[in-house]
Design a binder for these strands. Structure first.
Lengths: 207, 207
DNA sequence: GTCTATACCAGGATAGAC
DNA sequence: GTCTATCCTGGTATAGAC
């Protein structure tokens, strides 16, 4: 890893822990193991370090859906829908756990989550990314999926968007409750399991 | 309003907009209309201003349940339950709207919401208050209420806590989506109405 | 209790040697 | 590309006159 990469890496950790204003250039330099002045050979300002982090996260986010096995918002979702066609409670539980744990422990997502909470009101770009990733995209993805499943008779016909919000909102709430409490993931998961079970009971067409 | 009160008032607005570190003592003094040095006749430090704001919000929060017509976590809830006994969809919609709009527009709650998002990871006291008010208390209140309603046959018998989370999580998600977007409250309310309708359809025993 | 003046320091950033 | 030395600004806080 180059020095430049190590700077963004350490800076992301510090910004997500102490906030942008709460992190000094010296803090970052110390973490990297160089003097603060040396840092300016790699970035022309503290703000530029922050901007490069935003780039880094954007790039990481683009791979997300692929790594999670989720199609992009604007790509076709037929194959995923086929996957869910014989959806069991165990399938749905495993999927929700996978997504939840990923959000909570992925090194980029989890740091971005905290950073975004702190900086969203200061930084329009962060605000936009945070809302897009954790709200709009998450909901519209689930909506499309559930809409398809309703059409295929896997879920009872109804309001797909309302169902999507009912599925995602508890995950979002639990993320808020357990972000930064990685030692209590098991507790979070047991609550999540109960919500998924309830969701399955409500929406899944009985076999 | 005394000068001291005006300082906390303006400081709360500034802290909830620009964050603690992003707000200077001069910013606060300017907002109040005095010189920054004069401010130290009322508070011995910037931190003390912040602490007095925490006090102010704590005091305000204590009145919340009363003002919303909601019993405290540890007080009796029988009368509220009686109120819901003949619960119609319109009743539930009106209640959820009232709670949601209150959270979003109450001058103390709405500023605390943003402040807490920014400062929760720096300040254990803020973290604790935020999680208690917007997560633990909100969920446990709804759980007690729904548990009682299930016992009385108003709701189908089942997992009251899961139902409570299904009711509250969408409200929490919408608060996150629309905090600081007071011009779009109508859009938020229409989404909320759909969720409440769905909730009512699922849990309310058919008459 | 408000003001002016000032002390003090931390943080961002640059210059120039190696 | 790292270092030391230094500049500059802005922010917290105090002293003392009115």
């Amino acid at each position: 890893m180059t020095t430049k990469e190590r700077i963004t890496e350490e800076a992301l950790t510090l910004f997500s822990t102490k906030g942008y204003k709460g992190t000094s250039v010296k803090n970052i330099a110390d973490a990297v193991g160089i003097k603060d002045a040396s840092l300016y050979k790699h970035f022309k300002s503290k703000q530029e370090i922050f901007d490069s982090i935003v780039e880094l996260i954007s790039a990481h986010i683009s791979d997300l859906s692929v790594r999670l096995g989720m199609p992009q918002y604007d790509s076709s979702y037929e194959s995923a829908s086929d996957f869910y066609k014989n959806l069991s409670l165990e399938d749905l539980t495993a999927l929700s756990r996978k997504v939840f744990v990923f959000y909570l422990t992925d090194p980029y997502i989890s740091r971005f989550w905290k950073l975004a909470h702190m900086e969203q009101y200061q930084n329009p770009q962060i605000y936009e990314m945070f809302h897009r990733i954790f709200m709009e995209n998450a909901i519209s993805y689930q909506t499309k999926l559930f809409d398809e499943m309703m059409k295929q008779g896997v879920f009872y016909a109804g309001d797909a968007r309302a169902a999507a919000i009912n599925f995602y909102a508890p995950i979002f709430l639990l993320l808020n409750m357990y972000a930064g409490q990685e030692d209590q993931v098991e507790e979070a998961l047991s609550i999540l399991d109960r919500q998924v079970e309830e969701f399955y009971r409500i929406y899944r067409v009985k076999l």
